[in-house]
């Protein structure tokens, strides 16, 4: 009896912790969603209303009218898409080359590439900006993507996964006369589908979030990505909280929906490593 009572008390305590934590996690999203659908006068009201009394879609409509949101979205999709494709291609190729072939200088090259994991982007950004200036690619898509076309972490991870593929599989195909390109694309790549999709999600999530570099290298709405566009918008329309909340809502929603659909893959992909910040 005594045992049971303490158990119920402990259970209450544990659920209490979980619920308080959950409120903290959801507070900004709940408030944002509420504010996105109510007029300014209601937003600044104290005490706050959680369910809008004067529900309106005007904020969302205004945001699309005042700000080239669709353009920011497109820019983010294009630049992120290019980065993901390039990282996948260079990482799987290099991972395969390092894991399944022997050539002079392989070890030193691999260690060199691996060592770039230690080099924070902030050390390279000034020279990279100069490169962008020389090539006249400041404020272009190419300017936004070029520092990220290759990722040492991707090479490292793909190498680890490639090592698990049996050599016999590759050699058998070679004896059958398959070309090296064919072996890579039709035999090796299909073996690593889960690992590659994890790398894709991992790359997508950090490049979608990348803020510092696009902030530096873009200066027109033609190329501004979503995070930078949002910030620019907030610097222009700082006082219009109702638009900002609608903008934040529109920016957060699509990724959140994808997350709910592909939760398992997302968690796996993002926790693959946290070395990207």
């Amino acid at each position: 009896m005594e045992m049971k009572r303490t158990n119920i008390f402990v259970l209450f305590l544990l659920y209490g912790i979980l619920i308080i934590g959950a409120v903290w996690m959801l507070l900004p999203l709940a408030w944002m969603t509420s504010a996105a659908f109510k007029p300014m006068s209601e937003i600044i009201q104290v005490p706050p209303t959680w369910i809008p009394k004067h529900f309106t879609l005007d904020n969302i409509k205004e945001v699309f009218k005042q700000v080239p949101f669709a353009r920011y979205f497109l820019n983010s999709i294009v630049t992120t898409g290019v980065i993901v494709l390039s990282v996948l291609l260079t990482s799987t190729m290099a991972g395969y080359g390092f894991a399944k072939f022997n050539f002079k200088g392989k070890r030193i090259l691999f260690l060199l590439i691996l060592s770039s994991l230690m080099i924070p982007f902030q050390v390279r950004m000034i020279p990279l900006y100069q490169i962008a200036q020389h090539l006249k690619i400041v404020d272009t898509y190419l300017g936004v993507v070029f520092p990220w076309l290759f990722d040492a972490m991707g090479v490292f991870l793909m190498n680890q996964f490639m090592l698990t593929i049996p050599n016999e599989l590759i050699e058998a195909a070679r004896i059958d006369g398959a070309s090296e390109g064919r072996i890579f694309f039709t035999i090796v790549i299909p073996q690593l589908k889960p690992a590659i999709s994890a790398l894709a999600i991992f790359t997508f999530s950090w490049s979608w979030e990348e803020f510092l570099w696009p902030l530096i290298v873009t200066n027109s709405d033609r190329v501004r990505t979503l995070p930078v566009g949002l910030q620019y918008f907030s610097e222009q329309y700082g006082i219009n909280i109702h638009w900002q909340m609608a903008g934040a809502f529109v920016a957060i929603l699509p990724v959140l929906i994808v997350f709910f659909i592909m939760q398992k893959q997302f968690v796996e992909g993002i926790t693959l490593t946290g070395l990207k910040g």
């Binding site: 979503l226 907030s234 920016a251 959140l256």
Partner: peptide
């Protein structure tokens, strides 16, 4: 609960920072 706790990780940080900025507003 696991899903709820993971939501901030996939929430765009700039957008979330806007919201926090306003949540921390001194008077309103």
């Amino acid at each position: 609960f696991r899903t709820i706790y993971f939501i901030p990780v996939v929430t765009n940080m700039v957008a979330a920072a806007f919201v926090w900025r306003w949540l921390f507003e001194p008077t309103n």
